[in-house]
Measured scan of single mutants.
Amino acid sequence: NSLAEAKVLANRELDKYGVSDYYKNLINNAKTVEGVKALIDEILA
């Protein structure tokens, strides 16, 4: 998966839960796919 794909999928996942734009910005600023995954795990914990 590319970083861009990971960000799109992460933001879709956040949308399902009604997560605020603050967290979407964190996702969009992530530098690695692993970073995106770690943020998602933390946000949805």
Rank of each mutant, 00 (worst) to 15 (best):
A6I: 11
V19Y: 15
N28S: 08
E5S: 06
K31C: 04
L39P: 00
Y22I: 07
I40N: 01
A10N: 01
I43C: 03
N29E: 14
N29P: 00
A30H: 02
L39R: 02
S20V: 04
Y22V: 08
Y17T: 04
V19R: 06
V19K: 06
N25G: 09
D21G: 10
V8S: 12
I40C: 04
S20L: 07
I43Q: 01
L14R: 01
Y23C: 05
V33P: 04
A38P: 00
D21A: 15
L14D: 00
L3T: 02
Y23L: 04
A38G: 05
Y17R: 10
D21M: 13
D41E: 13
A45M: 12
A10W: 04
N28E: 11
R12T: 07
A4H: 12
N25W: 14
D15W: 08
Y22H: 10
E13M: 15
N29L: 11
S20C: 08
E13A: 11
L9N: 12
D41V: 14
E42H: 14
T32C: 03
G18C: 06
N25A: 14
T32Q: 02
K24G: 03
I27F: 02
E5F: 12
N25E: 13
V33A: 04
A4E: 10
V8F: 13
A6P: 00
Y17D: 02
I40A: 07
T32V: 01
N28F: 11
D15M: 13
G18W: 05
L3M: 02
E5W: 14
N28M: 12
K16S: 05
D41R: 15
S20A: 11
A45N: 12
S2R: 11
K31V: 12
L14V: 05
K16V: 05
R12C: 02
N11S: 10
K24V: 05
T32K: 02
V8E: 15
G35W: 08
K7G: 00
Y23D: 03
D21P: 13
E13R: 10
N25F: 13
K37T: 07
I27A: 01
Y17F: 09
E34Q: 09
L9D: 07
L26H: 03
N29Q: 13
K7H: 02
G18K: 09
K16L: 08
Y23A: 04
I40W: 05
K31G: 08
A6T: 06
A10C: 04
V33G: 02
E34F: 07
R12G: 05
K37A: 08
G35H: 14
K37C: 04
S20T: 10
I43A: 09
L14E: 00
K7N: 01
A6L: 13
G18E: 06
E13Y: 15
E13F: 15
